[in-house]
């Protein structure tokens, strides 16, 4: 464990570019985990990842049931892709994932953002993607600190012991 003493991670910059439950939660769990360890954490949401911090969308995240080879039926049988195309299946699967997470005390997205920011973590939206999707500052959760450019993102990353993570 000598390495953890010589070169500790001091700051993580996490980028989330997708809106699926698994992509968003990977970013949030990593950010919250960093804050819990006393590591500075900043999360940058871009492209479809913006859904996770948009008030209108953040409670409606889904996991894809089509083209997802990791999908299985309860019990472990393969999940036929054609099933995933049926109306309501994606919503049902997503609701099931959310209830499983709740059982592990993993909070819903808005509460997760609150946990991260309460611990000193910061949430940012990508300016380019915000303009592309024609969103405004008021469309975002109160936990979003700012809308920033990629240049500003790299400025925030400055310092020894920073890791940039693209989920």
């Amino acid at each position: 464990m000598a390495n953890t003493i010589d070169h500790p991670v001091k700051k993580v910059m996490i980028i989330c570019a997708k809106a699926s439950i698994e992509d968003v939660y990977a970013a949030l769990v990593m950010a919250n985990g960093a804050v819990m360890e006393g590591i500075e954490a900043k999360v940058f949401f871009t492209f479809f990842g913006l859904d996770a911090i948009t008030k209108k969308q953040m409670k409606k995240l889904h996991t894809g049931t089509v083209g997802n080879p990791g999908m299985r039926m309860p019990g472990g049988l393969p999940f036929p892709t054609i099933l995933g195309m049926l109306p309501g299946v994606e919503a049902g699967v997503s609701a099931m994932m959310k209830s499983q997470m709740e059982k592990l005390d993993i909070p819903p997205v808005d509460e997760f953002l609150e946990l991260i920011t309460a611990g000193g973590g910061e949430i940012y939206a990508c300016k380019l993607a915000v303009e592309m999707f024609k969103l405004k500052k008021e469309d975002f959760s109160e936990h979003v600190k700012d809308i920033i450019t990629i240049g500003q993102f790299y400025e925030l990353a400055a310092g020894e012991g920073t890791q940039i993570i693209f989920t």
Binding site: M36, G38, E114, L115, A118, G119
Partner: peptide, 29 residues
């Protein structure tokens, strides 16, 4: 029972921010 930052923040004893303020850095540890 399992201990999480969330459960402490909801305990009514302290909120999440207060927990980080009381035990700065790595509060749960």
């Amino acid at each position: 029972e399992a201990l999480t930052i969330r459960s402490i923040g909801k305990s009514g004893v302290v909120d999440t921010k207060g927990f980080y303020d009381l035990f700065p850095g790595a509060p749960l540890k």
